[in-house]
């Protein structure tokens, strides 16, 4: 049982009315924070206090609060999802902070992820990249028996390591180049490793990378910050796989 003491924290939070307004940092204090609270619950408490005072609450994206939906998008004290590795902000608990600490909370910063309001950004660029090729072209019905395709355990485990990406965008947020390579690489690695995804692997690599570049993400310079901060701990390997797929696809380029 944790009997941690209650904490008082000072927060510096980015406030921005909408996409077209200029934003600024505002200072807040939250008192009596329990170390067992999640980071988002701490923000809930702040918002409740703000509403009662008649001040507009801080807008932030969140939904499942169990680390899988990928909605969380908070840059906390200079790191996406805060100081703990392998967790999203909703799974980050206040015991990772100490009494009297000041915490800077910013939205993801990337031109491809424009701020919508306060800490909420528009990540539809990711959806458009998937639309460009992050799928297997099969219609519903008519699929062969599932066991007619043999897939080695290694291949399926590799595919699953990659496909567990939650699309949160922490990789873009932390990358000094705002590169989306880990996200794009994860989908390319997942599908190219499986026989189902192989027939259109070249087309997929070309189209997804073309879309990635078009959205205004930077390019990967192998700092590996994305893999270090990915809440699902997706490996750099997927980026390397993406490049290999792209190189193999060269013969299909027009």
């Amino acid at each position: 049982m944790s009997n941690g003491k209650k904490m008082n924290l000072s927060l510096k939070i980015w406030r921005q009315a909408d996409k077209n307004s200029a934003g600024e940092f505002k200072d807040y204090t939250v008192n009596n924070v329990s170390p067992d609270m999640s980071f988002l619950e701490m923000l809930d408490v702040l918002n409740e206090e703000l509403i009662i005072k008649g001040e507009e609450p801080v807008a932030f994206d969140h939904d499942c609060r169990e680390g899988i939906c990928g909605s969380c998008s908070l840059y906390i004290n200079g790191r996406p999802h805060g100081p703990k590795r392998g967790v999203t902000a909703c799974q980050l608990h206040m015991r990772s902070f100490h009494d009297g600490q000041s915490i800077v909370i910013e939205p993801w910063r990337a031109n491809a992820f424009p701020v919508v309001k306060d800490l909420i950004v528009d990540r539809s660029a990711f959806d458009r990249i998937i639309t460009a090729g992050g799928f297997v072209s099969v219609n519903s019905g008519g699929a062969a028996d599932a066991n007619s395709i043999l897939i080695s355990k290694d291949d399926v485990e590799y595919a699953l390591d990659a496909s567990q990406c939650i699309g949160c965008g922490a990789c873009v947020a932390v990358c000094k180049n705002s590169s989306a390579s880990l996200f794009v690489g994860a989908k390319i690695a997942h599908l190219s490793r499986l026989p189902q995804g192989s027939p259109e692997r070249h087309k997929r690599a070309i189209n997804m990378i073309k879309q990635m570049d078009k959205e205004g993400f930077g390019s990967c310079t192998n700092t590996e910050a994305c893999a270090a901060e990915c809440p699902k701990e997706i490996s750099m390997d997927v980026i390397v796989t993406m490049r290999k797929e792209y190189m193999k696809a060269i013969k299909e380029m027009e």
Partner: peptide
């Protein structure tokens, strides 16, 4: 590459703890 990469983020972070996730050399 550097110029494109820099342009990918017009508004910079107020606080960046880069040493937590990448090497000095790579940056």
């Amino acid at each position: 590459i550097t110029s494109i990469n820099r342009k990918a983020r017009n508004i910079k972070y107020k606080k960046v703890d880069a040493s937590a996730n990448s090497t000095f050399f790579s940056r």
